[in-house]
Design a protein around this nucleic acid. Structure first.
Length: 814
RNA sequence: GCCGAAGUGGCGGAAUGGCAGACGCGGCGGUCUCAAAAACCGCUGGGCCCAAAGCUCGUGUGGGUUCGAAUCCCACCUUCGGCACCA
């Protein structure tokens, strides 16, 4: 046989055969231990790009490896199918979003099949399918029942390009993460999920193996601060409630010489005096006109206006002015701060500009606090100017002040978070309708569960108006109130699509269940996900939301355990050949379909895995395909062109071949465990070379050859599933190579007999000597001193010290 | 500004205290061929040297620890990522 590797003849053939044999379906009733491997499902953009391949092919390799280790592996796939592009396509091209989406899915299914991945298509989910979003709506109702969904007016991020509000997580540097438009601040009544209820728990990552990078990003995003809430009475007739402020420095409260409110703060209008009103109104309007980007710039000089009103410092009793300034954010804490210019840089800058009083309340080494301060200082030695607290050391000051505040009922120790509740309303059409009804008499009423799904109406006008297109469909909007049947109106906003993806991994376990989102038995069998893989761009969106969702589901008794994904691996970003992100405008897009058509799926998979460490990503090297193709050709030739056989069971060349084989298994197994696919491929290339050299060198022991070839094909199976299957069959293996066990290595056979021992003199390599691997220090010394070269370097001296690393090195120190 | 990761041949990268550059690309030389391509084989960090042997330099920069450092420690530079007026 001298035929050559032709992927065209084998890839389609085996894909069909695997499908016919349901090889990739994970049965629910199977005695093997389960392994739930999950790769993030794709958005239905209509085209599978290189980034998808880069994410999915290695995930598939890892999943196949687990199967060869004896697990019942579930590796499902589906489509994240709701979202704006479908609607924008509808507007631009006058096609129905549904038609656009399902046509895209059809195309992408073909692309995914040609990848040759072990996807369990019998578990496919499509989030825009009523069978799926019925349960997304169901989840909404459960969260509502738990008090975790609520409607409130708040400062929301409005994207003028997308004509909808966005969650905080979708705003990057003041811009929409999708359209890049500068977001505007609008005060709107919207639906939220109380993710902040779980802030504390979301900061803990106990029992899960997630990358440090993702954990840090989530931790930063949640932004926990310890401090106190302090109440400052307002000295304005008719304002009874005190002004509460959050501070991380309650110990500096005696130095609070003024207060600052965000310009949007509710109290501003009520406390502003007649004299100050024109200036305040002007400032509030100016602030409202500014973009968030300008407003949040730390470069900008601080500005503000006095309201004319005063508050009382509850500790010092001092009457202090209330200002407004745009450096105070209405979205954080209470939207008001106590300003302590002596100990806060921002307050200091503000006080200096407007001539406000500065009172230091700590002593500080190297600072004369009886002189006007040059700058604020944050640490200190002990409290001063603080009444009975004077002399309290810095370290215990916070606790002392908090304890006092709690005793007096003027404040309390608290923890504040940067994390805001998750805004889930969207003023767009292509999403799951929020299953609520507004009734004049009964307020907001949930749609009864048996009426789910609330179907999206069809034939809708999409031209963006700033309101959901659903508002215009009278026959859909007008419904009877579920309580008394009187005329009422449906909620017309749709759900953030991140809600659809927050629970998809749960639905995969029981995708066809018509009674429940998942049966308790199947949830228990498959969940949580053992290995999740996906991009780091979802760190504070999808990956945070799905953890929140899971914890809420746990508290409702639907799932068990504290975390939805036990292990997470975040792959890097595959870049264009020029080192930039692939984009049509740059013209550096690498199209998978073309490469698959030219070189085959196996080769493309390997090329992507050979780029470098998976978590680092990097530029795609167009010429790199050659190396992979050469390897696959050599592997083909090694499998189909037998050597001359002879009985050489104990011969040294046999031992040496077996050593390479067993060592490769050892290393390849470690590489699989650590997702080090590039070094794994390198090792298999070496094994292929070793086999072909052994064959060309003369007669080979039959058993050793078969062991080596068989091991090579088994280890290639997760990487090149089609090629391995074909060669497995040609070399007499039974269907399927993917149902075989991963090879085991014999440490004894992997061990070296002879080693090249490095001899160093004063730490520099001067000689290499052949020695039995088990040689002792004394033996190594004798062998080293037998070398003329070593003796020359020793120059007749006796080594002062000898370092011996068995099997590796002997260092003679003079 | 704060936090984190990274920096190694012409290129992607390997080696996480013990032979720097595995494996691959590219390059050079060869086999085959009328020729080219493909395939296969060999060589391929810099310097000294006709060459080899050999010596020497070499993992962002400068110091340190160690018999021995790409690897550990300190300082700095650069790149990337995250957070950033969060009180």
């Amino acid at each position: 046989m001298s035929d050559r590797y032709d992927f065209r003849a084998i890839e389609g053939k085996w894909q069909a055969r695997w499908e016919a044999a349901h090889l990739h379906h994970a049965p629910d009733d199977d005695a093997r231990p389960r392994w739930y491997a999950l790769t993030m499902f794709p958005y239905t953009s209509g085209d599978l790009h290189t980034g998808h391949w880069y994410a999915m092919a290695p995930s598939d390799t890892a999943a196949r490896y687990r199967r060869m280790q004896g697990y019942n592996v579930m590796f499902p796939i589906g489509f994240d199918a709701f979202g704006l592009p479908a609607e924008n396509a509808a507007i631009a091209r006058r096609i129905d979003p549904k038609d656009w989406t399902y046509a895209n899915i059809e195309h992408m299914r073909g692309q995914l099949r040609r990848m040759g991945a072990t996807f369990d298509w019998e578990r496919e989910v499509i989030t825009c399918d009523p069978d799926y979003y019925r349960w997304t709506q169901w989840w909404f109702l459960q969260l509502y029942r738990q008090g975790l969904a609520y409607r409130a007016e708040a400062a929301a991020n409005w994207c003028p390009g997308c004509h909808t509000v966005l969650a905080n997580e979708q705003v990057v540097d003041g811009r929409c993460d999708r359209s890049d438009d500068v977001v505007e601040r609008r005060f709107l009544t919207q639906w939220f999920f109380r993710i902040t209820n779980y802030a504390e728990e979301l900061l803990r990552f106990d029992g899960i193996n997630w990358p440090e990078r993702i954990r840090t990003m989530q931790t930063n995003w949640i932004g926990r601060s310890e401090g106190a809430m302090l109440d400052f009475p307002v000295d304005v007739a008719g304002v009874e409630d005190p002004l509460s402020v959050f501070t991380t420095r309650p110990d500096t409260v005696y130095g609070a010489t003024f207060m600052v409110l965000a310009p949007e703060h509710r109290l501003v209008d009520r406390i502003t005096t007649g004299e100050q009103r024109p200036a305040v109104d002007r400032y509030v309007q100016e602030t409202a006109r500014q973009s968030e980007i300008d407003r949040l710039s730390t470069e900008k000089e601080k500005t503000g206006v006095f309201t004319g009103a005063y508050a009382i410092n509850p500790f010092s009793g001092r009457r202090i002015p209330i200002w407004i300034a745009d450096y105070v954010l209405v979205t954080y804490g209470t939207g008001a701060v106590m300003a302590v210019p002596a100990h806060d840089e921002r307050d200091f800058a503000f006080a200096r500009k407007y001539g406000l009083e500065v009172i230091p309340v700590f002593t500080h080494e190297g600072t004369n606090i009886s002189q006007p301060l040059e700058s604020a200082f944050v640490d200190g030695e002990q409290m001063v100017n603080s009444g009975t607290f004077d002399g309290t050391p810095f370290a215990s000051a916070k606790q002392a002040v908090i304890a006092h505040a709690e005793r007096e009922g003027i404040g309390r120790g608290t923890v504040n978070y940067r994390l805001r509740d998750w805004l889930i309303s969207r003023q767009r059409y292509w999403g799951a309708p929020i299953p609520m009804i507004h009734c004049d008499e009964h307020g907001v009423v949930p749609v009864p569960e048996e009426q789910l799904p609330v179907l999206l109406p069809e034939n809708v006008q999409f031209e963006p108006t700033g309101q959901s297109p659903l508002t215009q469909i009278e026959e859909w909007v007008n419904v009877p109130c579920p309580i008394d049947g009187k005329p009422a109106r449906r909620e017309t906003d749709t759900l953030d699509t991140f809600m659809c993806s927050s629970w998809y991994q749960i639905r995969y376990c029981d995708p066809h269940n018509q009674e429940q989102p998942v049966s308790p038995e199947l949830a228990r069998k498959w969940l949580p996900v053992d290995q999740y893989t996906g991009g780091a761009e979802h760190a504070v969106m999808h990956l945070l939301y799905t953890r929140f969702f899971w914890k809420a589901a746990r508290d409702m008794g639907i799932v068990e355990g504290d975390e939805p994904m036990l292990r997470l691996f975040s792959q890097g970003v595959i870049l264009g050949p020029d080192g930039n992100r692939m984009s049509k405008s740059r013209g550096n897009v690498v199209a998978p379909d073309e490469l698959v058509a030219e070189w085959g799926a196996d080769a493309f998979r390997c090329q992507l895995m050979f780029v470098g460490p998976w978590d680092q990503g990097g530029p795609y090297n167009p010429t790199g395909m050659q190396g992979i193709i050469r390897w696959l050709n050599r592997a083909w030739s090694v499998a189909v062109e037998e050597p001359q056989f002879a009985e050489l069971a104990g011969a040294s060349e046999t031992r040496s071949l077996r050593r390479v084989v067993h060592r490769t298994i050892r290393e390849a197994t470690a590489d699989m465990e650590s997702f080090s696919f590039h070094t794994l491929i390198a090792r298999l290339m070496e094994l292929t070379t070793a086999l072909s050299r052994a064959r060309d060198a003369g007669p080979v022991d039959r058993a050793a050859w078969n062991e080596g070839l068989r091991s090579l094909l088994l280890m290639m199976a997760p990487l090149t599933p089609h090629l391995a299957e074909e060669l497995w069959e040609r070399t007499g293996g039974s269907f399927s190579v993917h149902q075989q066990l991963w090879p085991a290595f014999d440490p004894g056979l992997a061990r070296d007999e002879m080693v090249e021992l490095v001899v160093q003199v004063n730490g520099k390599v001067r000689e290499r000597i052949q020695l039995a691997a088990t040689a002792s220090e004394a033996e190594a010394r004798v062998a080293a001193l037998a070398s003329e070269k070593v003796r020359q370097w020793l120059d007749g001296k006796e080594p002062r010290k000898v370092v011996f690393v068995p099997g590796k090195l002997l260092n003679l120190v003079l």
